[in-house]
Each structure stands twice: as C-alpha cells, then as structure tokens.
C-alpha cells in the first residue's frame, strides 16, 4: 500500500462522500430539516439502479435517471407527509418520522428486491487506467467528475441568481419570505425532491463499488452527518471540502493504521473539531 495509491483512493472516496452528503447539506441549509431516512433512500436508489440494469436491461445512464426519478418521488412523498411538522419546525418529530420512513423503505426493499446481495456491474467498472502508478476505474473517475460538476453547478445556482436568493430568504426566515411573495411550501417540496435526487444520484454512481444489500445505508447516513457538520451546516463549499478531507483521512487511516477503525476515527475527528470549533470548519454562512 503506497501513499499515492491511498491518496487517489481517498480522493475518489472523498468525492463519493461529498456527493452522498450534498442533499442533506441543502436540506439543512435551506429548510432547516433533517432526514434520517437518507441512508435508506441511498439503499433503495442503489437497488433501483441495479434492477433497471439487471432486470429491465436499461443502459446504465438511463438507469441513473430512473434512480434519480425514484429519489425525487420518495422525497416528495416524505415532504408531503411532514409538511405540517416542517412549518412548525418540529425537528424531534421530523427526526422520528424520517427514521420511520427509513425503516419502511428497508421493508419495501426486502419485499421487492429480496434479501440477496446484488452486484451492480456498469460498463465503466471494466475500464481501468493508470494514474501515477495506480489503477483507477472509469467508474471512480465518473464519481469524481460528476461530483465536481454537481457541486460547481449547485454553488453557482445558490450563489447567483434569484433561486439562491430565494433559498437564503427561506433559510433565514420562512415566515418573512411569505410576505415577500414566496410560496414557501413549494420551496420545501423542491428542497426535499433535491435531497432525494442527490442521494439517488450518489447511490447510482457509488453503489457499484460495493455489494448492494437492504441493510446498507447506515454508514452513508453517518458519513453524511460527519460531512454536514464538519463542513459547517448548510455550506455547499464546506461540504465538498469536508467530504474530500474525510475521504482522504479514511483512506490513509484505513491503509496505514487499521481499516476496521476508520469510521471510529472519523467520529473522533468530528468530536475534536466540534469541541475546538463548534460551528464546523467552514467560514461560510448557512446555505452557502
């Protein structure tokens, strides 16, 4: 295990983490919401991608689209169920409801897709090339490229233009935003649809790296939590950097210390950072 190899591995992992977390970052930054069903949307979207390819015979890019659409639908259904709680900003109830949704999704996945582990093979997994002496698959490269493009686009949308301003208004004061003529309900639906779509996109790209089971998703939700908090809650740029940092840290720790304790170590880092800098690492304001 050489250093360069672990670094490259960490960069790929980091972009995967950032992509997995970005939905929750926006959810928290714009709507002040949490979604503990996040990991199960990831799981379900991974299955949907696999099923679209393996059962329906769809090309992989189309399967990604199907998974993203499924993510949007799940997000909209969740928000529809929680709309009253959202307006009341009743975070404890929202936490419990989203946890419940997560369990239901696991149940549904078990019924529909069965208990066997599945492997999603994409045309990109077969293509390998050499970078600085180590091998990288086209799938890994796709994760990095898509994550960078996705973050750039999101950053531009939220930084400039009226959509970002609307998001910042709703983030700061949803009641006041109504007086400015904003349909806050629609913003909440849009944000949850984005959350579902983003984590589904992440799943469609990242899930081919590991076997797909109905009980995956827990690690993803933990990683998301660490990235969102380390990145400074609601910060898009912060989430990217935190995801990347966590990925590199996990790869190096896993490669040179012990892979078994990598997640534990990540949490240790989180706790240390929170104790030293309670607002996270990012300097940015919420929703940025």
């Amino acid at each position: 295990m050489n250093l360069v190899q672990q670094l490259i591995n960490g960069i790929v992992l980091g972009h995967a983490y950032a992509l997995i977390a970005i939905g929750w970052t926006v959810l928290l930054g714009v709507a002040r919401l949490v979604n503990f069903g996040h990991g199960q949307i990831y799981m379900l979207a991974a299955f949907v991608t696999w099923w679209s390819v393996a059962a329906l015979g769809l090309p992989y890019p189309v399967a990604i689209g199907v998974a993203v659409a499924a993510g949007v639908v799940i997000g909209l259904i969740m928000q529809a169920a929680m709309l009253r709680l959202t307006f009341a900003q009743d975070l404890v109830s929202i936490m419990i409801v989203t946890l419940g949704f997560g369990h239901m999704m696991r149940g549904v996945a078990g019924l529909v897709f069965g208990g066997n582990p599945q492997v999603l093979e994409t045309p990109l997994s077969w293509v390998e090339f050499e970078v600085a002496g180590s091998w990288v698959t086209a799938q890994d490269l796709a994760i990095v490229v898509v994550a960078i493009l996705f973050f750039l686009l999101l950053y531009l949308v939220l930084e400039r233009g009226s959509l970002g301003r609307t998001a910042r208004m709703v983030a700061e004061d949803p009641k006041l935003a109504q007086l400015a003529g904003i349909d806050v309900r629609r913003v909440y639906f849009a944000v949850f649809a984005f959350e579902g779509a983003a984590v589904a996109l992440a799943a469609a790209l990242v899930a081919p790296r590991t076997p797909i089971l109905t009980n995956i998703g827990f690690e993803e939700v933990i990683i998301t939590f660490v990235v969102v908090v380390l990145g400074g809650i609601g910060s898009v740029a912060g989430s990217y950097l935190a995801g990347l940092g966590l990925g590199i840290f996990t790869a190096l720790f896993g490669g040179f210390v012990s892979p078994a304790y990598a997640t534990t170590a990540a949490f240790l880092v989180l706790i240390v950072v929170l104790v030293l800098r309670p607002s996270g690492l990012a300097m940015g304001r919420a929703s940025r």
């Binding site: 700061e172 006041l176 007086l179 003529g181 904003i182 349909d183 806050v184 309900r185």
Partner: peptide
C-alpha cells in the same frame, strides 16, 4: 388564500418590527 397568494394579488404587509432579511 395562503399569504404569498394574497401578496401576489396586491395585498402587502410590513409586519411589526420592520422585518427585513438580515443576511441579505
């Protein structure tokens, strides 16, 4: 109608305490 729809029709409120978006 919800508030935003009333605003769209031309009814506007400046609430108590002159509410503005501080971070904008």
């Amino acid at each position: 109608l919800p508030p935003h729809a009333r605003v769209a029709r031309g009814l506007t409120l400046v609430p108590e305490g002159g509410a503005v978006f501080m971070r904008l």
